[in-house]
Write a protein that binds this DNA or RNA. Structure first.
Lengths: 153, 153
DNA sequence: GTCCCTTTCGAGAACGGTTCTCATTCTAGT
DNA sequence: ACTAGAATGAGAACCGTTCTCGAAAGGGAC
């Protein structure tokens, strides 16, 4: 029963419902993983999660848990610059946001963009994609730079 | 000496010079890889390249070639939704562009955005990142959608 | 051309993150 | 309690990628 972070009740309820719809249980491990993701400032790697959960969770269970949550649309899977998988709560739980990526240490941090800009971007994205015949379902912006910590070296 | 695609002379010259600066040769395999990347409509996986080069290039050589070209700043390494590596010519050879990603088949295609939009985005990106203390070095936009081929199913 | 030095190459082993297998344990509903 | 389905833990298997090492090739000096 690992749990380092506390889980906001609204997310708790939403996830429990979503899992219930799929005849899946909201087990302690799943809850702990969701809690860590909810508390994180950006998407986490499985290794990050193992560290934060105190390695009480076996590797295979963690991956399976993440796969289950992914299939249930609760988490979203991305990949960082090194190609390793990172998980974050899905947009309907976490809100629409983008990523700031440090080219030095690889840290990924969530950022939100003011709504006006966001709708400008959405319009642009729709237009561009339509010209190529794609049916747009979303977009993702990664801003690359050097974080303050890495800049000091 | 695999070569399926022809290499534009301007790229040819630029790459040859860049390699020469690093005391590296522009061997047939390297040329063939660059030619394939130059001819592609989007970033390619090592597997894509092996296929296009007719498997005349051994896996280890391909990866080494790509690493060499990467170190020389000739190609750029990204990762697709499945986490596998994709290579494309670096921006100074290929121009600044973004990616259209098909959520169905995983295909990645280059798209260019009109210059006004691009500078709007650059301004936004700079502003947002500065607020977080990051020193911005670039940005990347992936537009997710369904390609026409996948939409037909 | 031939020698030498360095770079490149090919084949296969090694690696590391992720997934799979399977036997065991848990849980909810009866 | 009993049982069927779900979840778990340990380890093997997988697969994309990197490393190792001996052989081959390129380029300059003579």
């Amino acid at each position: 029963m690992p749990s380092t972070a506390t889980l906001p009740t609204d997310i708790e309820r939403a996830v429990r419902t979503r899992l219930g719809d799929r005849a899946a249980r909201f087990t302690p491990t799943r809850r702990a993983v969701v809690a860590e993701l909810a508390a994180a400032e950006g998407p986490l790697t499985p290794a990050d999660l193992l560290r934060r959960l105190g390695a009480r969770v076996p590797v295979s269970s963690l991956y399976r848990t993440l796969a289950t949550l992914d299939e249930g649309g609760i988490v979203h899977r991305t990949h960082d610059a090194e190609g390793i998988t990172r998980f974050e709560l899905a947009e309907w739980l976490n809100g629409h946001h983008h990523h700031l990526v440090c080219v030095g240490c690889g840290e990924v941090r969530d950022i939100e963009i003011n709504g006006d800009w966001e709708s400008t971007i959405a319009a642009l994205v729709g237009r561009v994609a339509a010209a190529s015949g794609y049916a747009v379902s979303g977009h993702r912006i990664d801003i690359e730079g050097t974080c303050t910590r890495c800049a000091e070296n």
